[in-house]
Every structure is written in C-alpha cells, then in structure tokens.
Design a binder for these strands. Sequence first.
RNA 1: UGCCUGAUGGUGUAAUGGUAGCACAGGCGACUUUGACUCGCCUAGUCAUGGUUCGAAUCCAUGUCGGGCAGCCA
Length: 613
Amino acid sequence: MSVEPAIPSPVPSDFIRDIIAADVATNRYAKIVTRFPPEPNGYLHIGHAKSICLNFGIARENHGQCNLRFDDTNPAKEEIAYVDSITTDVQWLISGWADHCLGYKPKGASPALQTIDGKPDYFIAPVGLSTLNSQLSASPSEPFSASSYFDQLYEYALILIKQGKAYVCDLSPEDTDSYRGSPDKPGKDSPFRTRSVEENLDLFTRMKAGEFPNGTRSLRAKIDMAAPNIWLRDPLLYRIRHTAHHHTGDKWCLYPLYDYAHCLSDYLEGITHSICTLEFVDHRPLYDWILANLDLPRALPHQYEFAKLNLGYTIVSKRKLLQLVNEKLVTGWDDPRMPTLSGLRRRGIPASAIRQFVTSVGVTKFDSLTEVAVFENAVRTELNGLAQRRLAVLKPIKLVLTNIPAGELIECTATNNPQEENPTTRPIALTREVFIESDDFAEVPPPKYFRLKPGGEVRLKYACIIKLDEIVKDATGAVTELRCTADLTTRAGGINVEKKVKGTIHWVSATHCIDAEVRLYDRLFNVAEPAAELDFLRVVNPKSLEVITAKLEASLASATPADRFQFERLGYFALDKDSPLLPSASQLSALSSQFPGKLIFNRTISLKDTWAK
RNA sequence: UGCCUGAUGGUGUAAUGGUAGCACAGGCGACUUUGACUCGCCUAGUCAUGGUUCGAAUCCAUGUCGGGCAGCCA
C-alpha cells in the first residue's frame, strides 16, 4: 500500500471537525483524543469503517490520538475471537495512518489513583505519539478495553452511592420495565429508591461478592422517574451476571452497563471528543449526568453524534449478517460478497478505497442512503492506479491464426500499468492458436459492434490486426473455432503499426496460458433497501456468485494475494486467500493448462461498461 | 399523544445573512492498441406558508414529512 501524507489534503470538513477546530483554536484541550469503541461481539463492516476513519482521521489531522477500545461490558455476547478480528481489521483499514495516531497502552497498564486539586482521580496518561514508540519497543502493548477499568468503575459507583445518587434496586427485570412507564407516560419510583446509603453500600458490596443470583438486584442512578427522556428514569448502572468474561475471567459477577461504563472509560482515557451514532443522542444527558455527579477533576469528554452509513443493496445489521452465514447463503463472515471488512479485503478491495469512500460521503446528522455507485466508483478509481494489467479470457472461444506455423512463438510486449509515469512492460506469447472472449465475436453483429465479425478486422491487443476468414461449427451448429489471418506488419515496430481498426480485443495464447478458477460476484441483494424488507432473505440475489474456469496469461501463475490485477477490458481481480501459491518460480515454465493446484481469482469489480447492449 | 433529531438536483454533500457549488449517477461529444482511463459540454435542487432584512438555503414562527427513544444489549 502506498504511504499517505501525515495530513490529508484537502483536510475533510464537517460539523464535528468544525467543533474540534474551534476547540483547538481556543486551546480547550492539550491534545485531541478520540476513540473507536466496538463491542467484540461480531465482525466489523463498511459502516464501522466510517466511524473508524472519522475518529482516526480526526486524530491524524490534529496530531492527536485515537484509541481502539473494546466496549466489553457484556460477557454474555463477547468473545476473544472478535477482539482479534476487529484488531486485524482496524489495523488493515488505517495502515499507513497508524503511526500518527493509533493509541495503544503498555500491556497490563491500569489506571492509577492520583489526587488532583485535592480530588481523588484515576488517571491514565494517554499514550502519545512521542512515547508510543519507546513504550512499544520496551514492552508489549494492547488495545484499550472497558473491562480493564472495572475496578475504577466500581469505586466510582461507591462514590455515587455515598452521595445518595445511586441505589440498589430489588425490582425484577419485568417490574423495572413496568415502573419505567412509556414515552408518553411518566414512570413511578421504585420502592427501593429511598434505601439508606449504608444499606445500599452493604448490598452493592454483597452484589459484587456474588451473594445474589442474576436479575435479583441492580444498581440504579437516582435521577427522575418522570423525566421526559426515558434514559433519565433511574437507569441501571450495574447488573448481576454470573458469567466469565473473556478478559477478566471469573473475577466479576457484577458488570456495568454501557451508559455507565462508556462515559467513564472516555474520561479515564482522556478522551476529548466522544463520537457516536445518532441513536445515542437520547443518551447524552445521561452521559453528562454521570460525569457531572462524580465531581471529577480533569476536563470532561463530550459526546457528539452523526448519522451512520447506509449503503444501497447492502445490509449491515449484525443479526442479519449472521443469518446469511448461518443459513449458508454466503460461505462465511469473510465471503467476498459480505460488507464486512474481512469480506471486502478478501474480495480485493484496497483499504485506501474504503477510506476514500467513507470520507467522501461526509459526516452529517441526516439519515441518508448512499448509492453503491459511489462506493464502486471509489474502488475503480483506486484500483485503476494500483492494478497491474494482465490478459485473461473468461469465456474462451478458440481462434486459429492460419498464417502462423504451429510451434512458432512471437513475443509481444505488454504494458503493466499505463497509469504509471514510466510504465514497465512484460513479454507475452503470441502463437498459432489463441483464445478470445466469446463476447468479442458475433456472427450476426448488432449495430455499432466494433468486435470480431464475419469478414471483419480487430486488433489483438499488444499484438497485431487479424481478419476473420472462416467460422467452423460442429454438427449442432455451435461455433467451435474461428480461423483468421494475422497481419504481422501491424505489430509494434511493423510498417503498418499505425493502421487503425475500431475494435481491440484481449486474448491469450492457447498453448501458453494457465487455467484458473474465477469467481464472479454480483450484488448480494436484488433491491436497494434490503433492510426495509419484511423478509430480507427473500431478496437475496440467487446469482450473486458465478464460478468459471478461465484462461490466464502464464505470468499470472506467480500472483500473490497482495497483488491487484486488471484483466484488461474485464475488471479488477485479486487472488483469493484460499488459492494455492506457486510452489516455486522454477515451476513456472512447467505450467500447463493441466496445472493441478488451480489458482482462484475473485473479481473485485468489473470495469465500467458504457457499451450496454 | 411525550422527548430528541433532521429536511438543498436522481443520490450524497458544500455554501455559517451576500453569485446555490462539488462528487456520483444520467445524456452528448473528443481521445483511445482497454467501448476503461482522461478531457469537454449538458440535464437537474434549497419541504411548505408566513415573517425579519437592502438581501434568507442560512434567522424567527407555524405547518408538513422523515428518523430515533420504553434491554438487567451496545
């Protein structure tokens, strides 16, 4: 991947960056610190990419820091495997940015109790750019996680209880629900709301000690059961959950809820701008209430909300993606048709294209639906600059150049990438028998058909102009072979090289090519808004995958998964991660159409085709 | 019926009281050893009604339409 400048140009602008710019201008914070806080309960997808690029992008643009923090407060749903995949995906997505802004903490480091202005405070110095490298080399590091603050969170809860701002409630989950009221009806006070501080302290301590079963008691903030905002109606802060946690093991049976853990985790990490999606707008007063009622000595973080990404023909609901996997409509979370970062990566989409795309859609509070064409355009633009051009024939038809003797090999020179300033070249073999794309021949051509037709001429790209003399058919009338004459004087360097024909087509030598499995993907859904369907499984595109055996130019035998290719006139392709790799370069010459360990290529995306038939 | 939040071409987004611009999509054309890329041109918009103002997409009022909120999920 190409190295990007430390600060992008132009610097993106949106309402959140405007707020931050104002904060920078007034020196409100010593350093801008953001965070990307996924719950490790699933795979990251294109929607997360928007949040990742926003948070890390802001850190990068402001010489700040962005922490990857696992919001792991619900052990019932979370797994270490997700921690690993998320870490991999984030690092992949921002590779090239990481040095500037990725916040990691030294392994095992935990907030330490300090006293600031006479007030007790747990303090984590954000690991900044200058200290990052030395610390990373000195000791192993790890991402941040809410679970590493459980001790501090517990002590903050004790403070709230002592101040009479939180209480232990014995209401069952069902009763808690009915006491809460509804959006248009106020709730009513829990009978346990007036418990004494001493009793609350005693009960909360015993909750931690594991004396009570799940669901029997909770810790609640004492705010206002009649508040118009439901999240202020004495929200739960802690629940009992006798479940082991992937990070803290069986140390805890008492786990904080999102609203309580999140704002305090932000505070502990020195987050300045806590950016989340619109559904948390209603939670912001609670976020602020918790921080305000703890009398914290340092600058408080603030929450800002933006609209999440909605992409046409795409689903990002974790539950629904899981359904696609479970019902075997796709092969897994990293199926190249999935909108997961691992799926997009496997499909061959460069991280830079995803970054470019999510940045281009902007950051607003408007609930929009972005057309897939915008994403596809970003992918093509990126790949056009990156991809090595190769010749490959997806649906072959044999063509014989009758004036070239069998066994003769004419070496042609092909350009690897015309977009480069000084393009490099490679040799390709022209022989008597070649394959061309069956779409590039028409016995009865439609109007304005530039390709091969009876009596017509086309150029074989990088080779010469050929003329169709004869169409050979089998007993059923199917075309089996095209017999042509090659005009070798139209080759590069030949006297008639300047001769123009309307059509130029791709081809491979029938005797110097390799077979490969090629997987052609189409959109996974047939409608623009699959999420709006009553049953989204009914709009799954049954033809989203087509597997074919294609003929590739021999040089492709040494492809690696990191390579990006454009098969000329067809689209962009990348080697699948499950594809066998060439055992050794020395075997290249021994390759034939019968090459046993068949390569597998994924079509990332087709080329734009304005010749719509 | 409560609270929160939003509305600019087909789509996404900018203009922060002073010429409604950009990108994608679409159309036409040029170029082309990729019907790609690139380049040129074109199509098309401020939710509605009032008000403030020399001047309103922007400020105010009312309305309309959309999204979110009642997990011991995040």
